[in-house]
Design a protein around this nucleic acid. Sequence first.
DNA 1: TTAGTTCCATAGCTATAGCTTATGAAATAA
DNA 2: TTATTTCATAAGCTATAGCTATGGAACTAA
Lengths: 292, 292
Amino acid sequence: MELRHVRYLLAVAEEMSFTRAAERLHVAQPAISVQIRQLEEELGTSLFDRRRRTIRLTPAGEVMVTEGRRLLRAADRAVDLAVKAGAGTVGRLAVGFVPSASNASLPPLLRRFSSSHPEVALELRELSPNALVSELRDGHLDISFLYLPFSDPDFEQMVIACEPFVVALPTAHPLAGRDPVPVAALADEPFVLPARHGMPGLYAKVLGICQDAGFTPRAVQEDVWLVQTIVGLVAAGTGVALVPASARAISPEGVVYRCIAGTQVHQVELAAIWRRDDASPVLARFLALLAG
Amino acid sequence: MELRHVRYLLAVAEEMSFTRAAERLHVAQPAISVQIRQLEEELGTSLFDRRRRTIRLTPAGEVMVTEGRRLLRAADRAVDLAVKAGAGTVGRLAVGFVPSASNASLPPLLRRFSSSHPEVALELRELSPNALVSELRDGHLDISFLYLPFSDPDFEQMVIACEPFVVALPTAHPLAGRDPVPVAALADEPFVLPARHGMPGLYAKVLGICQDAGFTPRAVQEDVWLVQTIVGLVAAGTGVALVPASARAISPEGVVYRCIAGTQVHQVELAAIWRRDDASPVLARFLALLAG
DNA sequence: TTAGTTCCATAGCTATAGCTTATGAAATAA
DNA sequence: TTATTTCATAAGCTATAGCTATGGAACTAA
């Protein structure tokens, strides 16, 4: 049995005429006769009572019409869903991000995508950068957000946000009175540093800023995972820190933010990364939104 | 799209290989390639990621596989149901009968059919003979049971039970002492007669028996619909009656049954009638049970 | 790296099967 | 009855599924 048999059957049943069904389907009448007969032979039973000139459905015909309608609906549905899945307007998108990235730029992006693609299920996961990469590789994630630098030939990347660094100081700190603060002024300060291996992008940037100012930061606390925690430690008076400007949103008692003095702009770049060979249409849609 | 496309897709998806799918379907590998490509072109999206040597389903492919399985199941189900409907092992049978026919012979027949055809819904209706005929004609009934004689070129009939007449007498009646009772002895008795137009078969039989005995029954009560009612009237002393022997099952206080004397056997025949042009497979099954 | 192997895709050809035209038989309608 | 409608059948044509041969790309194993 093929869907053609069902389509012909329904046309005949609905027109109650082989002739009119043929017209409706834009084929000659004998084509209908032959196809219906084939179906009848396959089923081992007749579908129409043709003894009168006005044909009638047999009980088996009635059943086949009912089930045939269901069948064609299921076929239409299958096509519709597959087309949508192919276009990326239905499906699933697993998004990963480093803890600090749940800041200003990401939520609005996700919200916009979600409202323009209501049939795509967004799955959000907060992971360390290396976990993000391995999950992307395994196909458990479709796209991830982390701080640059990052480089891997298997992945493509796109910068989606670029924010300046600011200095986080305990409120009582002598430098809190100055704004902007020159980086060189922090040369002898104890530093709270982000996780070197966990967040290599951020770590490298902070180190770079200090080295540009002519010193290597003295770590009083290393391997801190969350920007939130860094800020907390600064607030507790543990030391000073260089953090992305979006950290201003986290403002616990005891910490102040100051701009960095000087002409050189130090920025941290939040990037989206995804597998180069990932052909997921949903991902393509998401990337289009990122780029557009 | 045809079911062939879906069958090929599922084979490829299950084997995860065009080559093995081709072997499984007993066709050459290019046939699979072409059909899958056709489906992909119709959907406007690819179903397999063929960049690697081990192919993978695309999101659209996953969807199409899931929906395709559903589709083939629906197709199988449609065929199965239609075949059963054609064989008469599933469906509906509307059975009509005159009130009096719900006696000894019919219930066991219906019970036997029902247990051998559990998927056939039996619909039972108690109607007058002319209503039976018109409902048969309209197709609201498939088969009916009534008392002969009945004759109509549009219908076929089969006698399914044949029972002798008996005389029903009030217990106190003088003839109650005799057994058998000669019909002639009832010549001057008041008769309770079945409905002439409502049950022509039974009425004609009773009249015939009396006329054979040389008299025309004097009706004290005519147009009685149910044999049960006739018996009740006899029990109340209204008159005597000739009723089918199965009426013995209805034995209220005040009535006795006596055989008819004489060599001539007077019998009433219960027959099944159905439309000559009715090709219903369920009916055919039922008739086979009646005949066999 | 290179040679060999294993895939799927493509091209050209064959054969099947669906379609068309022409026509016939049976049931209606006039 | 005759004319008309309707479905079935037959013959020829055409479209298409499928086959064989082959090529290119991706792995695999020296």
